[in-house]
């Protein structure tokens, strides 16, 4: 290359320093989660604890009930991802490959509500969930998170299905397959890559979401997710800083581990979604 080597090196060092700054908060959190209470704010910038205090994790896990929060988060995330994938794939398939009465209207509604932020409809959603008798239930939270919104997932499927060759269906139809067989036997298996994208994006959304589970579990602490439980920890044990750091690590590590294991997929999904 034409560019001089020292310049390259400087750019690399700069990027590396910035990257270290970027992960410093996590390193500090890890270190704080292993320190004693006075050490956190008393030992200056030192990151290595005198002696790792694993008890902090035990406290966060059992006393505060993070085991329960963890289970809640897994159930709610799993349910939400499943709901969104199923309904988006079904709707995306017919939107992408078929004409029907009312299609324009449906797309129009999608476009109008595309940018509606979650916080602005929370009051009626609570009201609705209450009327359905679903407040303080997993299904209530899952429906609240996954039943509405997520137009982008539907559109991703629609875009993908519309790009598949027309012959696929015609052959199957000649063999006597009905629409359900065509969808479940041919189309759905073909949609692997886009399903991966949708799963990853909705997983990130559902695992990290806060406002809706917060409001839905106000009167039922046993239903809290990790994100909500974390803030409850602050309210009830505000001065237990090392426990707080340990709790934060417990809540953050799984999603970071999933990311590092699947990072190629994550990055491709997001890049793919934006290109659409």
């Amino acid at each position: 290359m034409l560019v001089a080597r020292p310049g390259n090196l400087m750019i690399f060092v700069g990027l590396l320093l910035l990257a270290l700054m970027w992960i410093y908060p996590f390193v500090w959190l890890l270190s704080a989660s292993l320190k004693t209470q006075p050490e956190i704010f008393g030992s200056g910038l030192g990151l290595i604890p005198d002696e790792p205090i694993w008890e902090n994790y035990v406290r966060a896990w059992t006393v505060v009930g993070f085991d329960r929060y963890f289970l809640n988060t897994v159930l709610i995330t799993g349910g939400t991802v499943l709901l969104i994938v199923v309904r988006s794939a079904l709707a995306g398939y017919v939107l992408g490959r078929h004409r029907f009465i009312g299609k324009k209207l449906l797309i129009g509604i999608f476009v109008v509500t595309f940018f509606l932020p979650e916080g602005y409809t929370i009051i009626p959603v609570v009201q609705l969930t209450d009327q359905l008798g679903l407040l303080n239930t997993y299904v209530g939270v899952i429906l609240g998170l996954g039943a509405g919104g997520h137009v982008s997932a539907t559109l991703l499927y629609a875009g993908y299905f519309s790009g598949l060759p027309k012959e696929l269906e015609e052959c199957a139809r000649l063999d006597g397959a009905g629409p359900f067989r065509i969808f479940f036997r041919i189309m759905l298996p073909l949609s692997g890559p886009i399903t991966a994208t949708v799963v990853i994006l909705t997983f990130l959304f559902a695992w990290n979401t806060y406002l809706l589970p917060l409001v839905f579990t106000l009167s039922e602490p046993g239903m809290r997710t990790l994100a909500v439980g974390m803030t409850a920890f602050v309210g009830e044990y505000s001065t237990d800083w090392s426990g707080l750091a340990a709790a934060a690590m417990i809540a953050l590590v799984p999603v970071m581990a999933v990311f590092i294991a699947l990072q190629r997929k994550f990055v491709d999904s997001i890049a793919g979604a934006v290109k659409q």
Partner: peptide, 28 residues
């Protein structure tokens, strides 16, 4: 630029974390 993938991973890491927990952690 060497180690692109590695650098990209580090920059991307905060994205996957939970906003509410990040908020609490940053109060400290």
């Amino acid at each position: 630029t060497p180690f692109k993938g590695f650098l990209r991973t580090l920059y991307f890491l905060p994205v996957v974390t939970t906003g509410a927990i990040i908020g609490v952690a940053f109060t400290l």
